[in-house]
Amino acid sequence: MKQTLQEEPMLASRRFFRHWQGTTVRHCDLDPNDHVTNSVFGAWFDDGRYGLLKQYLRPIVAQSDVFALVSVTIDFSREIAFGELPEVGTAILEVGRSSIIMGQGLFIAGACAASCRSVTVMMDGVSRRPRPLNEAERDILMSFAGLRENAAADWS
């Protein structure tokens, strides 16, 4: 089993995620082996993270403040081919003082093709230093906490 799935086995369960974003496999995403190249998985996970932050957190965050990705781990479980329809599920695993730990799953026809764990830090746009998340920001983020009880049957 992959490291990310050992740490967070629920990332392989569709029922764990509250935020979803579909994407498209483009011909230019393919490598010489005719499957999606690994760097595209990273871009899809980035789109999923940013989609959640932009839609729900950005409206209440100062425009000068930034979300800085400081760590990302991706584990690949299967190939993705042209014509398949990937979906990225994103969930909040933990909220720290200024950090947001997210877990993600990339699914094809209900099966997990890759999982991701990342850490994003909220930064003050002027000082370029981490700044604490306020209560309203924490509440929004926690509304996207992973649904562990719903996913438990898939990974227990």
Rank of each mutant, 00 (worst) to 15 (best):
K2G: 15
Q3G: 06
Q3M: 09
Q6T: 12
E7A: 12
E8M: 11
P9D: 06
L11H: 09
L11T: 14
R14S: 12
R15F: 10
F16C: 11
F16E: 05
R18E: 08
W20H: 10
W20Y: 10
G22Y: 01
G22I: 00
G22R: 13
G22D: 14
T24L: 14
P32M: 12
N38C: 09
N38G: 07
S39Y: 10
F41V: 03
F41R: 05
G42H: 06
F45L: 10
F45S: 06
G48C: 02
R49S: 03
L52E: 10
L53H: 01
L53M: 10
Q55D: 11
P59N: 08
I60H: 08
A62G: 01
Q63G: 14
Q63A: 14
F67C: 00
A68V: 15
V72P: 07
V72H: 04
I74K: 01
F76Q: 07
I80P: 05
A81T: 11
G83L: 04
L85G: 05
V88A: 08
G89D: 05
T90A: 10
A91P: 04
L93N: 07
V95N: 00
S98A: 15
S98D: 03
S99A: 13
M102V: 09
Q104T: 08
G105D: 07
L106T: 07
I108K: 08
A109Y: 00
A109M: 09
A113P: 12
A113F: 11
V119N: 04
V119M: 09
T120C: 10
M122I: 04
D124Q: 03
D124F: 02
V126Q: 06
P130E: 07
P130F: 11
P132G: 06
N134D: 15
N134H: 13
E137P: 05
D139E: 15
D139C: 08
I140M: 02
M142Q: 14
S143E: 11
F144C: 03
A145L: 12
G146S: 11
L147W: 02
A151K: 00
A151D: 00
A151C: 09
A153Q: 09
A153F: 08
D154S: 15
S156F: 10
